[in-house]
Design a protein around this nucleic acid. Structure first.
Length: 204
DNA sequence: CTGGCGATTCTC
DNA sequence: AGAATCGCCAGA
């Protein structure tokens, strides 16, 4: 390839979670493990703005073994186990010691559909195949072993295929499942592509 | 050391 | 509406 489409470090570091959460819509998330190449077009994200964000694991500068990834320089994955059974994928944003991240919530299957269908036990045309952060991780084979992986390597990365959305094609809404975040719970930090079926259906 | 609780999903 | 399922982390 003449021009690599793989997004590089500066794209993740020289920005903030709010901008990136919107800009990642339409980008293509790839995973390649055990010879299985799969990818999905990012259709839904949420911004977590760091130490001041009551919904963030890094709220109040909380720094533990789990949250360590977020304190690293941007451009790596932050994966954690949620509800004891789902692996959730975040993209670490910004500089060193600035724990901001973007949660990838949904993708539209793009490559390796047979692998995705095998993992999810359903058709890749079914929106539930990769909508919602837990389902998306299962569809793309994302596990804890991806935690702290640089997106510049060849197990998990993001490509720009030129797909762009206008502002009026992007819906913003409150983040899901963060009612504990009090006054930050209703901030419109969730973004998804209008009229795309591959987004979280219910919200509470 | 302990116990309450999830950035969820699926079934009943 | 409830279950599944287990690591995290604040508090003792």
């Amino acid at each position: 390839m003449m021009n690599s489409k793989k997004l590089q470090r500066p794209y993740f570091q020289n920005t903030d979670a709010l901008f990136l959460a919107k800009d990642l819509l339409g980008k293509v998330l790839f995973t390649h493990k055990n010879g299985e190449l799969t990818a999905g077009i990012i259709t839904e994200t949420e911004a977590y703005f760091g130490t001041e964000d009551k919904a963030s694991h890094a709220y109040g500068c909380r720094r533990t073994a789990r949250t360590e990834a977020m304190y690293q320089p941007g451009g790596i994955a932050y994966i954690y186990l949620c509800y004891g059974m789902h692996y959730l994928l975040n993209i670490v944003v910004s500089e060193n010691d600035d724990p901001k991240s973007v949660l990838i919530r949904s993708v539209q299957p793009f490559k390796g559909l047979s692998f995705i269908e095998e993992r999810r036990k359903r058709s890749a045309a079914e929106p539930s195949v990769s909508s919602g952060p837990g389902s998306l991780s299962q569809a793309l084979g994302i596990y804890l072993s991806f935690n702290k992986k640089p997106l510049t390597e060849d197990e998990i990365w993001i490509e720009d295929h030129g797909l762009r959305y206008r502002d009026d094609e992007i819906i913003s809404a409150p983040r899901i499942g963060v009612s504990y975040a009090k006054e930050h719970a209703l901030l419109p930090l969730r973004f998804y592509v209008k009229n795309n079926r591959f987004v979280t259906q219910k919200s509470k």
